[in-house]
Design a binder for these strands. Sequence first.
DNA 1: AACTCGATTGACCGAATGGTCAAGTCGCTC
DNA 2: GAGCGACTTGACCATTCGGTCAATCGAGTT
Lengths: 178, 178
Amino acid sequence: MDRAATLFAERGYHPTSVADIVSSLGVGKGVFYWYFSSKEELLVEILKASHQGLRRRQQAAIGDEPDPLLRIELGIRASMEWFREHRQFFTLFQFAATEERFAPVLRNNEEVAIADTVRHIKDAIVDGRIADQDPEMLAQGVVGVVEQLTRAYFFERDEPVDRVSDAAVSFCLRGLTG
Amino acid sequence: MDRAATLFAERGYHPTSVADIVSSLGVGKGVFYWYFSSKEELLVEILKASHQGLRRRQQAAIGDEPDPLLRIELGIRASMEWFREHRQFFTLFQFAATEERFAPVLRNNEEVAIADTVRHIKDAIVDGRIADQDPEMLAQGVVGVVEQLTRAYFFERDEPVDRVSDAAVSFCLRGLTG
DNA sequence: AACTCGATTGACCGAATGGTCAAGTCGCTC
DNA sequence: GAGCGACTTGACCATTCGGTCAATCGAGTT
């Protein structure tokens, strides 16, 4: 599944045939259809699994940190590290967003990600650290910054993690707290 | 070209055949290959043209406004309005980013967009309105917020422009000025 | 050794696609 | 009205792809 994700990301979903995938794994085509009922299902599984991986990484980084703003910072840094290590998935998320049939999975992934962030933002609003605004919009803003900086500096150039995530964190925290 | 962009956006680039495009236009296939040398070239042309359209809209909105922060705000609002009216192109930009062969066009588009924003940010830094930081990273942050809010609130839900662009502007300006 | 059955193979198939081209059409000029 | 060339048509072709399936393998069981 990892190999398939890498191929999809390198060459695109459609241009990568099932034959490509199985031959790159050195197995027959039958074994593919033994485990997955279609090429489409394979991508859906990849999307779900990779999002789980990202979320686990975030939760591990946050641990039981009590400060909501610090939780957000740790989540941002963990996400950027994870994306840098798994750039294949980044491309796949982007592709999946362009075809209607993958929308449900993707929307679900996004809802989870936003809900996680919203929770921390609400805590910070209660603490008076963030002014009272729509927490979901703020969360979307944070996600946008993280994704864009990831794409621009890890994917297109090859910057070190710290410099970029420092920038993301400071932009987001200022954006949140004002 | 507009019709083709809409079809690509609705059904995805690969699943939309040249036959689909020409029959939806009520013309023969030959006329397509008279104007474009390939399906790939068509998408490239669409990407270039639509980005020009967006940029014109931004420049029209900014006019000769002297305040750099206000220029950024006007640019953000104009972009969001334009994306809301031309959602087809948003999906296409996203798709094109997932296939290597479209990367050059897309990278060029992005460089232009970032350079525009960077110019205003540098002006604001000179004026002392923004602290001295890497202007490009700030610009990427702004673009990220705009794109994410656009996708989440115009594309997936159907929110009014003002509420969303107010949020985008305030998040970005706080993120920039701190 | 014979049997079982989950796992695996890869030749094969129907469908669809990007692109070609011989055959027009139509407005223009001389 | 003949000639011309820009433009249009759609049947056609070569190729590719997702998916099927009869055949085979081989580890465990009797």
